[in-house]
Nucleic acid binder design. Structure first.
Length: 385
DNA sequence: AACCCGTGGGA
DNA sequence: TTCCCAAGGGT
């Protein structure tokens, strides 16, 4: 009894004939050479080869992130940490500060950890075999195939969102593109199509096609080098693919944070646990409003629970709407004053009193950064009451 | 397998 | 405004 992925695999691979192979291995790379966008991690060194470390950093930053968004982060990051050894030697706070605003912060923590492993176990050289590189934290099937093909010429086909979109269209795949069996079948298909003479060029060509022409909403089929072999184009409705299940509704929470100052005007911040969401970043103490609570009550309870001290809640400082990956919040920030006692973190995480100007030295999540912006705007234009 | 994990931009 | 989703990985 064949599994669903095996059945789909056979059906797809059976459709790979000379015309399809020529389209993917000749027409597509030729098109790519003409439109290839310059990117800082695409520059080769004196020997014409790319620095595996820079390719690696770029691929991690590009996970679920647009090229335009990642590019300035990449420039600053490799400037600060030019080598694996430099990254491994850096304190995590500094790594997270350079990642601030890019999101999915476990990527930064894992990359930092992985750099330590590369130094400790591979003499600082990025592993050039699939098994060794894949074993590093934060390196999954996509990143392994991307780095090893682009930097070392290994014959591994990438399967990312672009490739999934291109393949499900060319082959008119009706199955749920995100489901495991479908992904496995598409990986096999990509492996089959891969041009082993220049895997890096092939992989980048498919991804560039997905980014520039075979886009989710309104694909530019008339200019596509694959339109002669594309089933979705022949059907006349390429945007119907890939087929995916509907996203489930996201919950909404009301969150309150305390911007508490001491006599010297310093503000109280705390670091989030490493294994939590936004792990390792700093924030103002606070938390979710519970049913029946006023905002001030939430503020007092959260500070009491987290730091063991009472606060007097002052006036509202900011109201921030923010969407995370799987829920939304409305965040209310209040000026607060400690009513006595020294705050002690109940979770054991570091807390710190810092001058408002020094807040820029710490990595904060976006919503907290909005609160800081409101704080700084107030300094420039003080309230008169 | 299903869920968790950020953010910004475009339609 | 709301929704989608972008060079995914971990659990």
């Amino acid at each position: 009894m064949a599994s669903r992925s095996q059945e789909l695999e056979r059906a797809l691979v059976a459709r790979v004939g000379p015309a399809v192979e020529e389209a993917f291995r000749e027409s597509l790379p030729a098109w790519f050479d003409g439109v290839r966008r310059p990117m800082p991690w695409r520059e080769g060194g004196a020997d014409g080869r790319r620095d595996p470390y820079r390719v690696w950093v770029s691929e991690v930053m590009l996970q679920q992130t647009r090229v335009e968004t990642a590019t300035p982060y990449f420039e600053r990051f490799v400037e600060a940490f030019p080598t694996v050894a430099a990254l491994a030697a850096a304190p995590q706070d500094r790594v997270l500060k350079l990642w601030e605003g890019l999101g999915y912060y476990s990527r930064a923590r894992n990359l930092h950890r992985a750099a330590g492993v590369v130094v400790a176990e591979h003499g600082g050289a990025v592993p050039d075999t699939e098994a060794a590189f894949r074993a590093l934290p934060g390196v999954g099937p996509y990143t392994a195939a991307a780095v090893l093909s682009l930097a070392f010429g290994r014959p591994l086909a990438v399967l990312d969102g672009n490739v999934i979109r291109v393949l499900t269209r060319v082959f008119a795949v009706e199955a749920d593109a995100k489901a495991g069996p479908t992904r496995r079948a598409l990986q096999t298909l990509a492996d089959q199509l891969l041009d082993t003479d220049d895997p890096g060029r092939f992989n980048e060509a498919v991804m560039e096609l997905g980014a520039l022409l075979c886009t989710p909403r309104s694909p530019n089929c008339p200019n596509c080098p694959l339109n002669g072999v594309c089933a979705a184009y022949a059907e006349g409705a390429p945007e119907r693919y890939p087929v995916t299940s509907k996203a489930k509704p996201v919950p909404h929470h009301t969150v309150v944070v305390a911007v508490a100052a001491d006599g010297a005007g310093r503000l109280l911040i705390q670091r989030r646990p490493e294994d939590a969401m936004l792990g390792g970043l700093w924030e103002f103490p606070g938390g979710k409003q519970e049913p029946g609570e006023t905002l001030a009550e939430t503020c007092r309870r959260e500070v009491r629970e987290e730091l063991g001290v009472e606060v007097e809640v002052g006036r509202a400082l900011a109201r921030v709407e923010h969407a995370y990956s799987h829920f939304r919040i409305t965040l209310h920030a209040f000026r607060c004053r400690l009513a006595g006692g020294e705050p002690v973190s109940a979770s054991g995480e570091p807390i710190r009193w810092v001058q408002p100007e020094s807040l820029d030295d710490y990595a904060f999540p976006r919503a907290n950064r909005r609160v800081i912006e409101a704080l700084q705007a107030e300094v420039r234009q003080p309230r008169l009451l």
